[in-house]
Nucleic acid binder design. Structure first.
Length: 424
RNA sequence: GGAGAGGUGGCCGAGUGGUUGAAGGCGCACGACUGGAACUCGUGUAUACGCUAAACCCGUAUCGAGGGUUCGAAUCCCUCCCUCUCCGCCA
């Protein structure tokens, strides 16, 4: 959610900035609703104030056994007028709220303006894609060839867009997870957290998945609607929902390993084969809660933390600054890490690192006490994949294949696999 | 699943319809006392929204959430959520 006061005061500029990301703000409608709201709210509060006064007087007079019939009559009139105003106000406020929750975040000034991913800007590259003398296979052929990746079994059990991993590949996925967690906790100062994988609606509103993206989520049936997390961002960031954090406790740095569940609505036909786009995948997620002035330093740091994993695994990648038109709903600035996939002869997203500024914090009422103002102010939130484990497994499989279809285990990973050097 | 108890400010805790946003205590902040500190004393100490250029002031709302009764609800009624205890079941 944007800062409402700021939005009211600079609605035209805000509309222009939102336009760069393809969102058209209904200025006339919002302005009209706001002025209606203002009138109704002032009226309603005045009436409430009068009613409170009357009630007090009635109480005092009754205590003295005086007659209060005239006051009662007056109070009754007020209440009628009040309930009328209140119902109007509630309606207008609900409508405003609906609009506000629908507005995406403002892009940071440094974000390149563009319409689609075509206009994302490459920031830097690391590593050289290996020139494989043989025709590189994709992870599906390799995995199935080894008998360790089984999409048929997954389809039988659940359906398309799932995978069964066996033996050393299942082991390697676990190894990757441990490897990532160790680096982030031991070298980058993150606190590991274990969190629920099923969350309530409030949490999803907090981080911005709702109300707009309901169809992307898996929800479970029942009276008490819970949703499978699409990313650990949801439960981890919501740790600070409705909290006021003392300045000395910032920044908070969390790392969590969780499965992620995505319905992949609207992605029919994209990456339907293999492990790139599944309904269920593993991810190690980094989350930071910081003071506003530290947000963009933190974004650079967090991005570099994710990069470390790729570097240790010696996987070639590039860092992309997403353009205004390609950024996620809640983000003010996003870097994507894209890893080299030989089979596709291109870089593919493996991590997304974003700064949300106060956008999520306002939705969540996550605040810190600013020592300068002594007032609670929204914190800034960030997160990034560090990394998507399933896609990392794909990248390792494809980049470390040899001409015989075997997978060499990256050196950094060998200690996590009892020294196994080759999967065959 | 069965039976019971309970949810009040940062924490503890009083409060069963009327100047209660809420006694008292703890904690915290500031001040006085002191050479300095402890002790002691004094003062202050919720959040959101509205009003405002902004701040103060002021107003409104909030005692788990929502609804109801009433001139007036932390207090009465209904629904839901959550926590705890015992039993059962169980990774």
């Amino acid at each position: 959610m944007l800062d409402i006061k700021d939005l009211r005061d600079h609605i035209e500029q805000t509309a222009q900035r939102l336009a760069t990301r393809g969102y058209s703000l209904n200025v006339a409608k919002l302005t009209a609703l706001e002025s209606t709201r203002k009138l109704l709210q002032v009226d309603a509060q005045t009436l409430q104030s009068t009613r409170n006064d009357l009630a007090k007087q009635i109480g005092q007079k009754k205590a003295k056994k005086e007659n209060v019939d005239d006051l009662l009559a007056e109070a009754s009139n007020i209440n009628q007028a009040l309930s009328d105003k209140e119902s109007q106000l509630i309606q207008v406020q609900a409508e405003l709220e609906k609009h506000y929750l629908d507005i995406p975040n403002l892009p940071h000034d440094s974000v390149p303006v563009g319409k689609s991913e075509e206009e994302n800007v490459e920031i830097r590259r690391w590593g050289e894609p290996a020139q494989l003398a043989f025709g590189p296979k994709d992870h599906i052929d390799l995995g199935e060839g080894l008998g360790l990746m089984d999409f048929a079994a997954a389809a039988k059990i659940s359906g398309s867009r799932f995978v069964v991993l066996r033996g050393q590949l299942a082991r390697m996925q676990r190894a990757l997870t441990q490897f990532m967690l160790d680096i982030h906790t031991k070298e980058h100062g993150y606190n590991e957290v274990y969190v629920p994988f099923l969350v309530n609606e409030k949490s999803l509103y907090g981080t911005g998945q709702l109300p707009k993206f309901r169809e992307d989520q898996f929800s479970i049936a029942g009276d008490n609607a819970l949703t499978l997390i699409p990313t650990a961002e949801v439960p981890v960031t919501n740790l600070v929902r409705d909290e006021i954090i003392e300045a000395q406790n910032l920044p908070l740095k969390f790392v969590a390993h969780t499965p992620c569940f995505r319905s992949e609505a609207g992605s029919y036909g994209k990456d339907t084969r293999g492990m790139i786009r599944n309904h269920q995948f593993e991810k190690v997620e980094l989350v930071q809660i910081v003071k506003p002035q530290d947000a963009y330093t933190a974004l650079e740091a967090l991005t570099s933390h994710a990069e470390t994993i790729l570097q240790r695994l010696k996987l070639p990648y590039r860092v992309m600054a997403l353009c205004t038109g390609d950024m996620g709903f809640s983000s003010a600035k996003t870097y994507d890490l894209e890893v080299w996939l030989p089979s596709q002869n291109q870089y593919r997203e493996i991590s997304s690192c974003s700064c949300f500024e106060a956008f999520q914090a306002r939705r969540m009422q996550a605040r810190w006490r600013n020592p300068e103002t002594k007032k609670p102010e929204p914190v800034h939130t960030l997160n990034g994949s560090g990394l998507a484990v399933g896609r990392t497994l794909v990248a390792v499989i494809e980049n470390y294949q040899d001409s015989e279809g075997r997978i060499h285990v990256p050196e950094a990973l060998q200690p996590y696999m009892d020294g196994v050097k080759i999967i065959q």
